[in-house]
Amino acid sequence: MIKQLYQDWIKGIWRNNPVFVQLLGMCPTLAVTTSLINGIAMGCATCFVLVASSLMVSVIRRLIPGEVRIAGFTIIIATFVTVAELFLAANFPLLSKTLGPYVPLIIVNCIILGRAEAFASKHSPIRALADSFGMGVGFTLSLVLLGSIRELFATGGIIGTRILPASFENWVVMIMPAGAFLTLGFLIGLFNMIESKLKSHKVTMSQGHMTQVKNS
């Protein structure tokens, strides 16, 4: 049982990463990753909505008739997003202003509706919790990665502290939309490259193991 839950959780981080593998939730990923902090904030907000709505969808999954399930999911998601938006505006006004209109846009973040439809509506609450939390963490990690890279090259440092030498000329384009697209494109390419290397490594390992077994 624990093993199953662990599997549900871990797949959202690498193997089924919502951004790099499933290519979902691109809008906020590109829009708010102008810095590490913004990436974390958006990731946490999305994770909250993801977990809360998946949990709720799973709990009431037997009560919603099939025809209106998308409408029902949407109401649930929109409500949690508004809760998150109001909470952010009330307690973190600066972040709220920076993230701006992209917080309500979490409603149409395909990850949330996607997980609700594909997993939460078909599994128990505890498994839905593990799955959605894994996806949320995976999403946040990708945002953090993208945000740090963009901030590093655009301002020379992260979280306000300068890391690169003073002689480095800031790549302002990284903070602009063009930089977002380019960085994400290259990151996906890198991700795919690592994935294929891992896969071919596994194949040669198992092939080696098989020849060993044959020879013994």
């Binding site: 919603i64 029902g72 109401i75 649930i76 929109a78 409500t79 508004t82 809760v83 109001l86």
Partner: peptide
């Protein structure tokens, strides 16, 4: 009925949050 119940719960929670 299901949609209306969901709507009410949603409306109520949002009023409190507001």
């Amino acid at each position: 009925a299901v949609l209306m119940v969901l709507g009410f719960i949603s409306g109520f929670s949002l009023v409190r949050m507001e």
